[in-house]
Design a binder for these strands. Sequence first.
DNA 1: GTTTGTGCAAAAATTTTGCAGGCAC
DNA 2: GTGCCTGCAAAATTTTTGCACAAAC
Lengths: 148, 148
Amino acid sequence: MATLVQNARKRLRSQGGRMTGQRWLICETLESMSGHPTAEELFEQVQVHDRSLSLSTVYRTLRWLEAEGLVSSRRFDGDQRQERFDPVHPSEHHHFLCTVCKSVIEFDSPLIDQISEDFEELEGVLVQCRSVELYGLCRQCRASENKS
Amino acid sequence: MATLVQNARKRLRSQGGRMTGQRWLICETLESMSGHPTAEELFEQVQVHDRSLSLSTVYRTLRWLEAEGLVSSRRFDGDQRQERFDPVHPSEHHHFLCTVCKSVIEFDSPLIDQISEDFEELEGVLVQCRSVELYGLCRQCRASENKS
DNA sequence: GTTTGTGCAAAAATTTTGCAGGCAC
DNA sequence: GTGCCTGCAAAATTTTTGCACAAAC
């Protein structure tokens, strides 16, 4: 499966853009971070490898990747201001968020299409996108909750 | 069914707060607006009836209502910055958003509980909240899309 | 009278943009 | 060399806060 850097390089080439060290690092770092980081979190992680890379560049790169459909941005319940970013996967997927440790688990279910089709029939609308978010306690946090 | 103003008044009484004209107007206006307005939109609508009511008061009231569990705030896909607010309904419900006219339709489906239970079993997590968002074309926009 | 609430203006927080210089091709 | 890209600082946008005054009990 193509990595984010590979996809980005392809897009850049086709539009006369350049795969700079900064873009490379941002893509690689984003892909290595599991939990849908904010721009700020990604920036901090990127700075470990390049002290001089700026937050503007992180934002500019993320927005470009988003426009290219390679990265998606969202806000989860309880996120007040900052957006979260993650590489777009080839297949649609949805999110479970642990309200204690903030970890994210991705999932999918055929029932989501069913819901969508039921609703189309009921209302006469056309559904083009679906987003399901579940919130609760992950396995670990659930266990430690029980102990205390 | 209790209105937002009625619920708010009850909470205020029990904690020594006051149902002021501003709070009343904000609650009534929010309840009368169907499409999950932003604070700014609510503010504009409120200003029709009270020119001197400030945006700060709108925010302060919304945050208080939110803390009391009477109003919920969210951001939909494509909303870049501003949050949207709406009165919390007694039963859980989800949202369909028209990507053209921005109208919002609320719905519910028993399959959502099913998805949630399936996922709990699969991952050993505890799901406490669910949020489903569908995006597409509403009946009207779908029709006018076909014509053109 | 005391406490709570409001408007205003200023601050805080997040994201975007203009510009001068730097780097990739 | 040309043109895209970056860092910096400043702007823009949304939301919160401090404070003096006003309103409700």
